[in-house]
């Protein structure tokens, strides 16, 4: 039992390190090779985790090989477009200039329901509104609406909006984040001034957000019962 516990801990650490080494892309958008590696790693790690008769090396070595291959392949994909196309394929246009490309849909084995579903997920509820729909190499769909169906932007309407910059959490559960303060171009002195003005202190704040313009929002902690 203890051996299984320690082995699982060790494998967990190795898997976390492996996924970190492969990069953030691994977690969010899986390309073909990344999906294969993720499935294989989870499968390989399970064997020595359950079977204490197998040495841990029989899990570590294949994981290390997969990580190595994944990094090499992603580096090669950056260097060569042809290689990238061979591994990941290419984006396919299923709606081109407002016209549904049935040949491409058949190639993708995509049904009309799949198309409608993916469009709805992009907040498009009529195929007529779509100028272009592209199935990306990671399987997600990108949609460009027809110009007359696009929502007007402030730029189109000629309205000048103030640039408030990024809003960041400068205090989280009583802890001040210098990194967030720096992101919104504010200093500790500014924060101290705001807290003094509100007659409170950082320890009493649950969340405080701020932006570059100097707008802020404070939510204080609930009183403990």
């Amino acid at each position: 039992m203890t051996i299984s516990f320690i082995r699982t801990l060790l494998l967990y650490i190795v898997i976390i390190a492996a996924v970190r080494l492969m990069g953030k892309r691994q977690i969010s958008e899986l390309q073909t090779s990344e999906l294969v590696v993720t499935l294989l790693i989870s499968d390989i790690a399970a064997i020595p985790m359950q079977d204490t008769g197998q040495p841990l090396a029989s899990g570590f070595i294949p994981i290390a090989v997969l990580v190595m291959c994944e990094i090499l392949i992603s580096a090669l994909m950056l260097k060569s477009t042809k290689f990238r196309r061979a591994i990941c394929g290419r984006p396919l246009i299923v709606i081109n200039d407002g016209k549904v490309d049935q040949k491409e849909m058949r190639r993708l084995r995509m049904s009309t329901e799949d198309l409608s579903e993916q469009l709805r997920q992009k907040n498009v509820f009529s195929i007529e509104d779509v100028a272009y729909a592209i199935v990306e190499t990671n399987g997600k769909m990108s949609v460009i609406k027809k110009p007359d169906k696009e929502q007007p932007t402030a730029g189109m309407l000629g309205v000048a909006l103030p640039d408030t910059g990024i809003e960041t959490v400068v205090i989280s559960d009583g802890v001040i984040s210098d990194f967030s303060l720096k992101l919104c171009n504010k200093s500790r002195d500014w924060l101290d001034g705001v807290l003094r003005g509100k007659n409170t202190k950082a320890d009493d704040i649950f969340i405080m957000t701020a932006n570059r313009k100097g707008d802020f929002n404070i939510i204080t902690k609930d009183e403990k019962k």
């Binding site: 080494l21 090396a57 070595i61 290390a64 190595m68 990094i71 090499l72 580096a75």
Partner: peptide, 18 residues
């Protein structure tokens, strides 16, 4: 940096296997 990490992993694996 990741390519170097992968090269180090490769060398490590070869050494371990040998």
């Amino acid at each position: 940096k990741r390519v170097w990490a992968s090269a180090i992993i490769f060398v490590f694996l070869v050494v371990i296997c040998v």
